[in-house]
Structures are given as C-alpha cells and as structure tokens.
Amino acid sequence: MELLMPGLGLIFWMTVSFGLVLYILKKFAWKPILNVINQREKQLAKSFSDAKRIDYEMSQLAVVKTSKLAEAEQIREEIIAKAHADAERIIEEAREKAREEARIIGERADELIAAYKKEAMQEIKAQLSALSLDLAEKVLREEFSDRERNARYVDKLLEKVTHN
C-alpha cells in the first residue's frame, strides 16, 4: 500500500523540474535538432529528385546527341558526295571546254593556213606573172633579133612554165 501513496513533495518537485526540462530542451535542444534534421531530409529529398531529373535529362540529351550525330554524318556524306559530283562535273566541263577550244584553235589555224596558202599562191602567181612578163620582155627583146630561133625558144619556155 505504501508504494501506491503519492507524495506531495515529489509531485511538486517533479512537476517543476520536468516542466523546466521540457521548456529548456524544447527551446535549446529539440527545436534546433529537429529543424536541422528536417531541413537536411528535405534537402536530401530535393537533391535526390534533382539528381533523378538531371539523369533523365541527360539520357534525353544522349538520345538527341546520337540523332544529331547521325544527321550530321548524313549531311557530311551528302556534302562529300555532292562535292565529288561537282568536281567531276567541273573537270568534265573543263575538259569539254578545252577540247572545244582546241578544236576552235585548230579550225582557226586551218583557216589561217589556208588563207596564208592562198595568199602565198596569189603572191607566187603575181610574182610569177611579173617574172614571166619580165622574162618574156627580155626574151622578146633578145629574140626579136633572130626571129626563128626566138620563136623556138618561146615555145620551149612556155612549155617549161606550163610544166611548172
């Protein structure tokens, strides 16, 4: 029975000290401790979700990167192919042009040669005729003295010229 009898003094002192302990610990211990623990947990949760989000974004970026790379590769190949084609075309064109030019030059040369030849022939003909006239005068002057021999001689010359 004596165990079950509450004591006034102990109740009083216990109330006072427990109340004080409660007040002091609430103010100087539990508040800062719980504050920091809660904040830390909040921050950690946030960091985790951030990390997850960033991870997801990174994976998305990787996908984009591969597709971009493939695209770039394709474009590169296209450009190279086009460049090859262009180069070949340009070379072909140049060749064609050169050939044409050569042909034109050749034609012009032929024309010139023909012209020169014609001119030369004319000159030769003119000179020949002049020479012939000159010769003919000389012969005529010479030969007119001996009519018969001249006549034969003219015949002989004419024959020679016509042979040429």
Binding site: V21, L25, F28, A29, I33, V36, Q39
Partner: peptide
C-alpha cells in the same frame, strides 16, 4: 529527479548546440 534533469539539460543542450542551421550536411 534533479540530477537526471540536469544531466538531460546538459546533454541535450550540448547536442543541440552542435546542430547548426548553416551546415545541415
């Protein structure tokens, strides 16, 4: 009761002091 109250206060106030808002990590 007094002794345990003092122990509790000293113990947990000193624990509380080591938790700083500035450095939660």
């Amino acid at each position: 009761v007094f002794a345990s109250s003092i122990i509790l206060c000293l113990l947990f106030v000193s624990v509380g002091r080591q938790y700083k808002e500035a450095d939660i990590y």
